[in-house]
Amino acid sequence: MLEVNGMENTVYIRMRNRVQVKSNDTVFLRDVAQIISRDNLHEKLECLPVHKVTTKDNNIIIIDVMMVIRLISKAFPTVDIQAIGPPQTIIEVMIKRKSVSIPLFILVWFLLFVGSAITIMNFHEDVSMQAVQQRIYTIITGKQEWKPLLFQIPYSFGLGLGMILFFNHFFKKRINEEPSPLEVEMFNYQQSLDQYVILKENKESVRRLDDD
């Protein structure tokens, strides 16, 4: 009998991974977590305010599941709360995004362009690419050539083609639908950043001796 009652009052919550809010928003429970509960409880739970974003907050706020449980059990002392999944939600406060300035973008573009041109020339000099190409040309045709352009021009375009193939991007068009190494890399980087802020911004997760 008791068990049946307990079951009826069980609330399952699962914290979302990452949530974006605007500054001065109030964050409700439905924003930070998925909830399963009895129907008559559900709406009240969803509208439970969890956090009010103020100007004092950083642009990253961590909502720990412990805090959410404390909140729910304060409002509904009889429910049994089961937390599933990630133990915290990262709230990203979207401060009005400055759009990228075009001159800065052009500068970065130019920097990368010149940089990669110089890098490839240095690489070629470093590995005596020209001597190797002259020799390959001689092996193929039997002719001596100081500038074997018949080999070198396709080689140069192949360079770019190889990079595009590797990154799986032909401008916006995909060659196949799997995520490119770059996207996986961006994802991994974001994961590491999240991991960092979870530990760094969550006051509860680290306890230090000097508490000032």
Binding site: I153, L159, G162, F167
Partner: peptide, 20 residues
């Protein structure tokens, strides 16, 4: 000499992939 074109292209693609 035409044979040098596909070989050059292949060499370039390979080095390009290495660089990427």
């Amino acid at each position: 000499g035409v044979i040098a074109i596909p070989i050059g292209l292949a060499a370039g693609i390979f080095v390009g992939m290495l660089a990427a």
